[in-house]
Write a protein that binds this DNA or RNA. Structure first.
Length: 562
RNA sequence: UGGUCCGUGGUGUAACUGGCAACACGUCUGAUUUUGGUUCAGAAGAGUCCAGGUUCGAAACCUGGCGGACCAACCA
């Protein structure tokens, strides 16, 4: 090895534990160095940010090692599943940037094969039909400290079991009357090895196979077989399946199938939100949010509507990495990732969220001039546009203070400020109503201070945004805050809904520069000095609606807090 | 109290498998700035759950504790 030019660079790129396994496998020529991963969602709910990072993980690994990635719907429980979820999951996965060509599979694609393989196990005396009730099965399994005891059906002959299983399949038994069990190890300290159920009877319609089947395989049986059939080399799942791995390996070994390897990682949690499908569903059904795609939801559809980019989510997945220990990632990291992406691509526009009117007394009445505003200082190719300026404008209410604290460099009586891309103004007079509310500011402008042609020589500390009263358009703007008031709602005592943030949605009517009239759903904007926004799908031809994706970093707000 | 897995700054991951702990977010300074944004420069913050042991040398290996998560659905 020759010495590296950059001696400070690590000798090796730092790898996560799964990459370590993969590289070891490649080095050893396992599967001829081929890598094949998959994402196996059950179509019984919408994808959330946790699923998204898992997709990034699995797809990313395949892409990195020139392998393949499959999307596979784990549809073994038709009672819980629905085609609606299949469609949304596929759409979200695609949006995230995963590619699987024609390799969109369903566990149900393999029902025939699974049925045949079950018969092989029965024939070899490794599986049996058990007519015990669910309670009996549970009871006979024993406890973690006490071994299980054999059911009286455990010794039925293979021939008889074969016939029984066929009758199960033919619908001759009632739902719940019997199950097919694998003969593993009743005395194992691992409960999942105590003759786990392979098939149960469910006389229900399946969204893919219709009414073809009335018996459906359990996860423990279906998953290794699906992986194996597809030639999945690295089957990545979450930690709670760790104890299932011996069963996973048992089936593949006993059936002599392609040895897919299961690898478990710790699911990643996020502060101030919840990830459990059950809880998410409650938020929707109980009306705490407006739907699965409510911009406050951690669902992929929610994040999309909120204005998050696939880029940002991929970057997030990358940054938080993957490991086996418990973790809670600060949402701040996610927010950092969107800001980072949006900063590069968002068009800068001006919009006043909470207005206060300013009259520029020495500016000609009825005059309108167009000032040039750059679309994005981070992108020289983005150009600029013309924005109308006139005698009466709106500025942000908190850009004015009657009695400003130290270091406040916005507008105040006698103070001077630059209007972004326009003139420098001085506040001469504060107009109040009978109730002492400030209703208007009277200012004067410096005529030769216009941006780009400033010969005034004046230096001002503050620059604020504005919008011309006569030209402003109005829009509904929805500001969002964290959905919960505590960092880890599911860890708190009591029902998680009591920790919902009552102020997670704040709706207001804003005044925006006229160019926003033509905003499209795919557009990304930065409302200067405020945050990143996108058009919401609730928009109608005469009612614009904008969502705040995330606010800008606000070091003044931090300063004020001190 | 049976089994499995896990314990590294506030948070998330690293440390090339034994050579006195790095990166990112966050925090704090300062500079630049017609966005209190961006960018740039810098700082503080862990001695790796604890105690022993092996070793010239341990975050890593061994032993024993402690702490946490998961497992007894005809869910996945």
């Amino acid at each position: 090895m020759k010495n590296n030019e950059n001696t400070n660079a690590p000798a090796h790129e730092s790898l996560n534990f799964i990459e370590l396994i993969i590289e070891e496998d490649i080095k050893n020529g396992k599967h001829n160095g081929h890598i094949h991963t998959r994402f196996p969602p059950e179509p019984n709910g919408y994808l959330h940010i946790g699923h998204a990072t898992s997709i990034c993980l699995n797809y990313g690994l395949a892409a990195k090692y020139n392998g393949l990635f499959n999307l596979r719907f784990d549809d073994t429980n038709p009672e819980a599943e629905d085609i609606e979820y299949v469609d949304s999951i596929r759409d979200d996965a695609q949006w995230l940037g995963a590619k699987w060509d024609d390799r969109e599979f369903y566990a149900s694609d393999y029902f025939d094969k699974m049925y045949e393989l079950a018969k092989v196990l029965i024939t070899e005396g490794k599986a049996y039909v058990d007519f015990s009730t669910a309670e009996e099965v549970a009871h006979l399994k024993g406890t973690p400290t006490q071994p299980g005891t054999p059911s009286k059906y455990r010794s039925t002959s293979p021939t008889e079991n074969l016939a029984l299983f066929e009758r199960m399949r033919n619908g001759e038994f009632d739902q719940g009357q019997c199950v097919l069990r694998a003969k593993m190890d009743l005395s194992s300290p691992n409960m999942h090895l105590r003759d786990p159920i392979m098939y149960r009877i469910k006389k229900v319609h399946h969204h893919q196979t219709g009414d073809k089947w009335c018996i459906y395989p359990m996860y423990d049986y279906a998953h290794p077989i699906s992986d194996s059939i597809e030639g999945i080399t690295h089957s990545i799942c979450t930690l709670e399946f760790e104890v299932h791995r011996p069963a996973y390996e048992w089936y593949l070994r006993e059936l002599n199938m392609f040895p897919s390897r299961q690898i478990e990682f710790a699911r990643r949690n996020l502060t101030y939100t919840i990830m459990s499908k059950r809880y998410l569903k409650r938020l929707v059904t109980e009306g705490h949010v407006k739907g699965w795609d409510d911009p406050r939801m951690p669902t992929v559809v929610g994040l999309r509507r909120r204005g998050y980019t696939a880029n940002a989510i991929r970057e997030f997945a990358d940054r938080i990495g993957v490991a086996k220990r418990e973790n809670v990632t600060d949402v701040g990291v996610l927010e950092f990732c969107v800001r980072e992406d949006l900063n590069k691509i968002a068009t800068r526009v001006m919009g006043v969220l909470e207005p206060i009117k300013v009259v520029i007394t020495n500016y000609p009445e009825g005059k309108t001039e167009m000032v040039s505003v750059e679309n994005n200082p981070e992108d020289e190719t983005s150009g600029s546009r013309e924005v109308p300026f006139s005698r009466e404008i709106y500025i942000e209410r908190d850009d004015f203070m009657e009695n400003p604290p130290k270091k406040y460099f916005r507008l105040y009586p006698g103070g001077t400020v630059r209007l972004k891309s326009a003139y420098i103004i001085t506040c001469d007079e504060v107009i109040k109503d009978a109730a002492d509310n400030i209703v208007e500011l009277r200012c004067s402008y410096i005529e030769n201070s216009r941006s780009g042609a400033d010969t005034s020589g004046l230096k001002v500390k503050g620059t604020i945004h504005w919008v011309s009263v006569a030209h402003a358009i109005t829009a509904e703007v929805r500001l969002y805050d964290r959905l919960f008031t505590v960092e880890y709602p599911s860890n708190e005592d009591g029902d998680f809904v009591q920790y919902l943030n009552p102020n997670s949605l704040h709706t207001l009517t804003a005044y925006l520069e006229p160019s926003l009239q033509n905003a499209q759903l795919a557009d990304r904007f930065q409302f200067i000095r405020k945050g990143y926004f996108c058009l919401d799908k609730d928009t109608t031809p005469n009612h614009l609606v904008f969502n705040q994706t995330v606010g800008l970093k606000d070091s003044w707000a931090k300063e004020v807090k001190k």
